[in-house]
Design a protein around this nucleic acid. Structure first.
Length: 384
RNA sequence: GGACAGGUGGCGGAGCGGUCAAUCGCAGCAGACUGUAAAUCUGCCGCCCCUUGGGGCUACGAAGGUUCAAAUCCUUCCCUGUCCA
């Protein structure tokens, strides 16, 4: 059991099973805040909350083992030092399980109109009040150390799609690599149980992805992420970039594809050797009235649900599906009631987590290829 | 009975001679959302056709009138609100 385990800076990844015909694997990620069963989907709680859900719901109703938070947002508000003074993010937001913090690298991309990338780092104008802030590879580690997340991410540059000319992609990728080395050099000075993951970039170029991954291997990181995907590219591209990268990453370390995906896509990443994923889709879409079910997407505002007495998803056993009609959910959404966000998010998140649980079970039982095949068939037929 | 103010598309409410099938908001209908500046955003929203772009019809309380042209100006009528008797 321990033969596959790797102890790195407080994070230990235990490989439990591997699919013989695909890259899929099941494992246990031991963190300072509990064990995370992989492959795992991590709910996104950017501002120290998964929008619409209480920690109790996340823990008891959904049994999420790890959530995401965001360095940039928490740094700006309420401030990482304040959170540190409250005993760290886990204590501040009262979430006893594991937390992964994104570095703000994604904000380099999504807030591109109010930032400037330099070799030193990124100068951001606060989206809240326009104040200028400098993020460096070192400072984002420091902020994340103050937050006390279990897994920290290095500052990276996430390029838009379609990507700029190859020369610029290469330049950006090398900057991401340099930033990662700087972040690790800084990080290794401290004794900490917090892990730090570098991020493979390289836009939609297989060669650059390979080059980036190989360079980052030198860091001997406790885990590796693949970033810069799901920025608007066709799905085959995202999967191709993943496929070319995961075989290069250490088998004994967790692999995390950042920001994916749709319900039917999750298994595709797992099939390519991915252990961790996160996406705003289940939570954001829920708030916007798009609910994922075993029968495809339900856009709850559609008039066809006005008289629908049935549950949102007959195949789901979440609180929402156990108790409420589609008609009532539609009413709540149209009325702009807060409860809709709660019930919708609860369901969508349950949908995602159940998908991951089924995937994990199938790997452990050696039935992953069958599940993969069935999922592909269903998503071709279904509307999902 | 008198004096004002009004009557515009499902509702509210702009427009006050042509560029008006008519700004805008709401409601309605549909779509999007992928490391969250998102409880957000987009499209459609009189009727009928070809369906890119257009073409036709009916419409701004009612009926007349002025004008090349009227939701917009004039006359009468109907209705609503406020105030005075």
């Amino acid at each position: 059991m321990d033969s596959n385990a790797t102890l790195t800076e407080g994070l230990r990844f235990e490989l439990q099973a591997q699919c013989p015909t695909t890259g899929a694997r099941a494992g246990l990620l031991h963190t300072a805040h509990g064990v995370v069963e992989t492959p795992v989907f991590m709910p996104v709680g950017t501002q120290g909350t998964v929008k619409g859900l209480t920690p109790a719901q996340l823990e008891q109703e959904l049994d999420a083992k790890i959530i995401l938070s965001n360095t940039y947002h928490l740094y700006l508000r309420p401030g990482h030092e304040l959170i540190r003074d409250f005993g760290g993010l886990h204590e501040y937001i009262r979430w006893p399980r594991a937390i992964l913090t994104d570095s703000g690298g994604f904000q380099v991309f999504s807030l591109s109109k109010i930032r400037t990338v330099t070799e030193q780092g990124v100068v951001f104008q606060s989206h809240l009040n326009g104040d200028k802030h400098l993020f460096t590879p070192e400072s984002t580690v420091d902020v994340q150390r103050a937050l006390g997340s279990d897994i920290m991410m290095v500052l990276d540059e996430c390029l838009a799609y379609p990507p700029p000319p190859e020369r610029e992609v290469r330049q950006s990728m090398h900057r991401t690599i340099r930033w990662a080395s700087q972040a690790f050099r800084h990080y290794r000075q401290f004794e900490t149980s917090q892990a730090l993951f570098p991020i493979v970039q390289g836009a939609m170029s297989k060669d650059l992805r390979v080059e980036c991954a190989e360079k980052l291997l030198e860091l001997q990181a406790p885990g590796y992420a693949i970033g810069g995907l799901s920025v608007g590219e066709p799905r085959e591209e995202s999967l191709a970039m993943t496929e070319v990268t995961t075989p290069l990453l250490p088998a004994g370390k967790p692999r995390y594809v950042m920001g994916v995906g749709k319900p039917e896509e999750l298994i595709e990443y797992v099939a390519r050797g991915v252990d961790m994923m996160d996406c705003v889709m289940p939570s954001r879409n829920a708030r916007n009235g798009c609910l994922f079910t075993s029968e495809g997407r339900v856009i709850i505002k559609n008039s066809r649900y006005r008289d629908d007495r049935g549950p949102l998803d007959p195949a789901c056993s979440c609180y929402t599906c156990r108790n409420f009609s589609r008609s009532y959910l539609r009413h709540l959404f149209l009325a702009g009631e807060i409860l809709f966000a709660v019930l919708g998010t609860l369901h969508n998140m349950r949908c995602y987590l159940d998908i991951m649980r089924r995937i994990r079970q199938s790997i452990l039982l050696g039935e992953f290829p069958e599940l993969l095949r069935a999922t592909r068939t269903a998503s071709v037929i279904g509307t999902a």
